[in-house]
Design a protein around this nucleic acid. Structure first.
Length: 630
RNA sequence: GGGCCCGUAGCUCAGCCAGGAUAGAGCGCCGGCCUCCUAAGCCGGUGGUCGGGGGUUCGAAUCCCCCCGGGCCCGCCA
């Protein structure tokens, strides 16, 4: 419904003063409380001293404003608290979508996210992706767009071939019944890869000398440490793979699997599909638990088999050049500042040629991704495709857009968005899925839940369901709280701190508001918000605390819109925390349900309801389901 | 070597894109508050040459340049 009191205020000022709304909005700010409720920074709004005098006078014609003071370059504005707060509460009660303003022209948008390699469990990096991606899909949908979420199953390529080879050496694809499939596959992958790497290094060491040999020996030490750890995890399996790897040429075998898979040889297809399906099954369990919904699962191999990749490759080859003995696509012929601007490619980014094909004839990831991008646009008839991918892939994503452009898919190139975010770094540890050194999302969720369970038991209200919900919330919030452009520093201490800046804190605050309503009903107070609006004491914001809360609630639509436009959950997360802080202070300061004055009580209940709605709506957009009681 | 992102309190982060009033939170640390709507809470105290240096400006954490430090990328991996 788009009810937004702050927007009303902007329009009101614009009407009263005749100043254009956009200019005003630019200069409008929230000052320190002592200066006013809002402030227009005059130079920012393009208003000079002379004009300012007139505006300071005419602004009073806006009924929402009680008084305005010209002070230096600032026009400080004090609102009519009664009018403004009544308006805010009315909006909350009457707009069941408060905070959201649906697009007049909804877009069709594909959000591809997670798309983790199906060779090991989802780790905390994928978790950040999942949290961001599901947030993006949720908020785009909430604002009225048609959104489809997709997961790209990278089952073609080296990594998958490696784990498939591991299983092949073991004779069969079998997942122990007590193991989660993706965890088991991750172990087999790490074992196979680590042993192969050790063999390769040992081979190279035979001929290496000097610095080169030194470097290799260091690497070998590290690998040996990883191997020992992996051996301990599954001694029999480790030994078996180790033995069998001795008898084969690893690279040759890998190449054979890759070629066989791309050609669709029945035996290889069965092997890989078995392994990958099992891993995806594990992903689905975890993602469902995490509240990240994927609507369409795309197999990369299907793109190869159906001829889409071949088609793209043929088209690319017509534009290809020779690069280091391979066929490649060079972008220098089309590169220009204008094109970079259009395709959102950094000005100075050096873009090397894109190699199109391995010498064994198999395809490469970025080439396959071109076919995939076209598929995403085509199948959903999408206006826009958003790829949620870590910043480390900036270059291939840029090459992807350039290649699309070169092939004449200009619209797709221009509307393919690389939603880039920085990675999760673990302090004191280098994560490596190839060596089985990862912190998994499953572990995080389990540990968070366990910690919360301990806390709940202290309160004598241990509920497994609530602990689960809160655990998921805690992890999601931790990953969404930091701006996407900044790396997340992971440590268990930070992830499991459930005070103040955390989801448990927000959920607790929400539950407090629910507690108020519960108590009210117990006391026989009817919580009919529309009725309460009629009888409420409109002067309740003579209290600065309550007034501050009203102002915060009034900002909700503005905050939501900003988060929507920038697809940035951290702004919303931070806002919710500040609302909770202010509410908790108020909650401690004065009774709400016990208020004797019926009219004032109505106002207080409405204010608590407003906070309740804002927290509920904000948390849900962040993918967190509120709990009524903790 | 080149590119992208980042550097704000002991620690984790807002603020920077669209420059404006004495730079904000949380954690930590110190000291208080539960016969009263949930103490994952509240109140008070502690803590910062905004990485460094130039420049633009009436005004710079914010814009520009240089330097230093960190993460990531520059593969016939994905």
């Amino acid at each position: 419904m788009c009810l937004n009191a702050v927007n009303d205020l902007k329009l009101c000022i614009a009407n009263a003063t005749g100043a254009p709304v956009e200019r005003l909005a630019k200069g409008l700010d929230i000052p320190k409380e002592e200066f006013g409720d809002f402030v227009i920074v005059l130079p920012k709004a393009g208003i000079d001293r002379v004009q300012a005098e007139g505006i300071a006078e005419s602004i009073m014609r806006c009924g929402l404003i009680a008084r305005a003071e010209l002070k230096g370059i600032y026009l400080n504005i004090f609102l009519n608290r009664e009018l403004f707060s009544s308006k805010v509460l009315e909006y909350i009660v009457n707009d069941n979508e408060y905070g959201i303003c649906r697009e007049r022209e909804p877009k069709r948008i594909v959000v591809e996210y997670v798309s983790a390699n199906p060779i090991h469990p989802l780790h905390i990096g994928a978790a950040r992706n999942a949290a961001l991606g599901s947030f993006i899909a949720t908020i785009l949908k909430a604002f009225g767009n048609n959104v489809q979420t997709r997961f790209y199953i990278n089952d073609v390529g080296r990594q998958v071939a490696t784990v498939a080879l591991g299983f092949k050496l073991l004779g069969k694809v079998e997942i122990p019944s007590n193991a989660k499939p993706d965890h088991w596959i991750g172990l087999i992958y790490a074992i196979t890869n680590t042993i192969a790497e050790i063999q390769s290094i040992k081979k190279r060491l035979k001929t290496a000398t000097g610095e080169e040999a030194e470097r290799l020996r260091e690497e070998l030490d590290e690998l040996t440490a990883d191997a020992t750890r992996l051996w301990k995890a599954a001694p029999d399996i480790f030994s078996e793979i180790s033995e069998k790897l001795k008898d084969i040429d690893f690279e040759e075998e890998l190449s054979r699997i890759m070629r066989g898979y791309e050609k669709g040889e029945a035996e290889v297809v069965q092997l890989i599909r078995n392994v990958v399906s099992a891993c995806i099954e594990g992903f689905k369990q975890t993602l469902q638990r995490f509240g990240a919904e994927i609507e369409v699962w795309d197999w990369e191999s299907d793109l190869v088999w159906c001829g889409d990749v071949e088609k793209v490759l043929r088209a690319l080859k017509r534009k290809a050049v020779e690069h280091k003995g391979a066929l490649a696509l060079s972008f220098s012929s089309i590169d220009s500042a204008e094109l970079r601007e259009k395709l959102r490619i950094p000005r100075e980014l050096e873009i090397p040629p894109l190699v199109l094909q391995r010498s064994n004839g198999t395809t490469l990831y970025t080439v396959r991704d071109i076919a995939y991008t076209l598929k995403k646009f085509r199948e959903f008839n999408a206006d826009k495709v958003i790829n949620v991918i870590a910043s480390e892939q900036t270059l291939p994503q840029a090459q992807l857009r350039l290649a699309l452009y070169m092939l004449g898919h200009v619209r797709e190139a221009e509307n393919l968005i690389h939603y880039s975010y920085e990675m999760v770094n673990v302090e004191g540890m280098k994560m490596s899925s190839r060596r089985g050194r990862i912190i998994t999302l499953d572990d995080m969720l389990d540990e968070a839940k366990r910690r919360i369970m301990v806390e709940l038991e202290k309160r004598g209200s241990a509920s497994e369901a609530i602990a689960e919900k809160m655990g998921v919330a805690a992890v999601r919030f931790y990953l969404l709280f930091v701006s996407p452009t900044r790396p997340v520093k992971f440590s268990w201490a930070l992830a499991l701190d459930f005070e103040r800046n955390s989801a448990p804190y927000l959920l607790y605050t929400y539950a407090r508001t629910e507690g108020i309503f519960r108590k009210a009903r117990e006391l026989g107070i009817e919580l009919d918000w529309k009725k309460l609006l009629k009888i409420m004491d409109r002067s309740f914001t003579i209290s600065d605390r309550r007034w501050r809360l009203v102002k915060m609630v009034s900002m909700f639509p503005e905050v939501m819109y900003k988060s929507y436009e920038e697809l940035d959950p951290s702004a919303l997360a931070l806002y919710l925390l500040r609302v909770a802080d202010e509410f908790n202070t108020w909650y401690d300061e004065e009774p709400i349900v016990v208020e004797k004055d019926e009219k004032l009580r109505a106002s207080k209940l409405l204010l608590a309801y407003a906070i309740n709605r804002v927290l509920d709506r904000g948390l849900r957009i962040l993918g967190i389901e509120p709990v009524e009681r903790i």
